[in-house]
Design a protein around this nucleic acid. Structure first.
Lengths: 277, 277
DNA sequence: TATACTAATGACTAATCGGTCATTTGTCAA
DNA sequence: TTGACAAATGACCGATTAGTCATTAGTATA
């Protein structure tokens, strides 16, 4: 488990410097200070490494954003906090951002293409949830356009973090973009993105959270967990999936226990989705 | 000259399907129906091919946009026309857009990084020119933010063209984004992007159009030109660079002659810049 | 037809790739 | 100290790569 982490970190450095295809397994193992054989004990192939990395780093990003959006912050600061968390993430993980938001070699590998689209869909859902909380029914026709604008702001302004390391005032940036979002939401009258269009672009991925896939995911994460409160919570949640017995508040509490463990926020996110929380 | 074109076209197809690193010279030559040796008669290395392609396709895009911006369209339709031309280009050249706007492996090769930044700077200049024409002094503090928003809209909405081939109403899209731009320009009060910040991000590229570099560029393009009005015009312009004799209207007319030839709009663009037109 | 020239070929090389596996090293309990 | 097992190694493999170059094909002139 620790070895995997090390490999992923060093690989991220190299991918961000040279790109995926241009980086050899040899280079990765050299930077890790391990042998080539050791690499293949952790990952079956070079592609499997990439897939693991996409999952690991994009999960972090998506869950970060979702957490802010679902938090019970007051309406007048939630937009600012949303942008602040986004760009904080870009700042802290500039390397992974460089790889996963720009290197679209990833998109030529079909398995990854679907994965990345899926994470983008999750991100869109979080943004839409936020917009619904903020504007309720005021934003009927133009809701999806506002979402596209928000994603555009993110793409455009994130370049400041990805391609240079100029010190920036995150608060000012967040306030500036929150205002822009507010303006767009209040004044837009000509919509372009329709619900149907959104559905069409999301089409390739229709991966539902089934009971089986969830159990499998939980099983995977149980492997790497010590005997702690978190492990117990996850085991209880597994029972709950197979055979619902506990009440909603209890389940929610168990999920929150998991969420405290940084590496387990994704499982928490998926379980919460499964139980509609 | 024709062979180069063929190779670039087929290479673009392959790069857009598989990415640059994953495409071999062998594959390119096979799709062209030529031998490997013939490839190396046109391009010294695989990297040189990539550089030529970046120059060729990004030049087209930048000049397309600049032409609309500099046209004498009335203020109330110029924004719409701007967006229409952008997305028309994305639609027509989805393959090259896929390669050059997404595959940032390009950015790991330093020479290309600077080139791409340079074209992005040209694009920014065109957008700023348009904003100045539209809003004059009304947009002092927030001018650069509006530019970043426009670029964000482009990035976000262009995905519709790049990752799917859903039939879209370009007019509706252009009108929708023109309205959003107008709204942002009129209402934004909290700026974030300052002139200094823009200068910092542009820093790596400070390539001025010198007399020598311009003469070299003209020389290059004269090689591939038949004996026509265009050739004569270009030769006269070459003389004008070395030894200014003609008046402004005449020079402008000569430049326009060149611009009519699709492959020569870039030279026209650079010459116009040199003579401050 | 003979000559001179360029355009085009594809077998070839040296290097590098992802991936394997017989072997060595390290770590336990007995 | 021994033996059993797991962790780690790196020489090695076949495949593929970018790039070369002796050779051939095609064409225009005399």
């Amino acid at each position: 488990m620790l070895k995997k982490q090390l490999i992923m970190e060093k690989a991220l450095e190299l991918f961000s410097e040279q790109g995926f295809e241009a980086t050899s397994v040899q280079q990765i193992t050299e930077r890790c200070g391990i042998s080539k054989g050791a690499f293949y004990l952790s990952f079956k192939t070079k592609d499997e490494l990439l897939i693991s990395m996409v999952e690991y780093y994009l999960q972090q990003f998506v869950t970060d954003v979702d957490q802010v959006v679902r938090s019970s912050l007051s309406k007048d600061i939630i937009l600012v906090e949303f942008y602040k968390s986004i760009f904080q993430a870009f700042k802290n993980h500039a390397a992974s951002a460089r790889v996963f938001f720009n290197e679209k070699v990833l998109l030529t590998k079909k398995e990854l293409f679907q994965k990345i689209i899926a994470y983008d869909v999750e991100m869109s859902k979080s943004i839409l949830y936020m917009l619904e909380q903020l504007y309720q029914d005021e934003l009927q026709e133009t809701k999806y356009d506002v979402m596209y604008c928000i994603k555009g702001f993110m793409k455009s302004y994130s370049e400041l973090f990805i391609f240079s390391d100029i010190p920036l005032d995150l608060d000012q940036l967040a306030r500036s973009l929150a205002e822009k979002t507010e303006i767009i939401a209040r004044h837009t009258t000509i919509p372009f993105i329709t619900e149907e269009l959104v559905r069409l672009t999301e089409k390739p991925c229709d991966e539902e959270v089934t009971q089986e896939s969830l159990l499998e995911l939980i099983e995977q994460h149980l492997d790497g967990l010590e005997d702690t409160i978190e492990r117990e919570s996850l085991e209880l949640l597994k029972d709950q999936v197979e055979n619902p017995t506990y009440s909603k508040p209890i389940v929610k509490g168990l999920i929150e226990n998991i969420r405290l463990q940084p590496d387990y926020r994704w499982v928490a996110y998926v379980i919460a989705k499964y139980f509609n929380m």
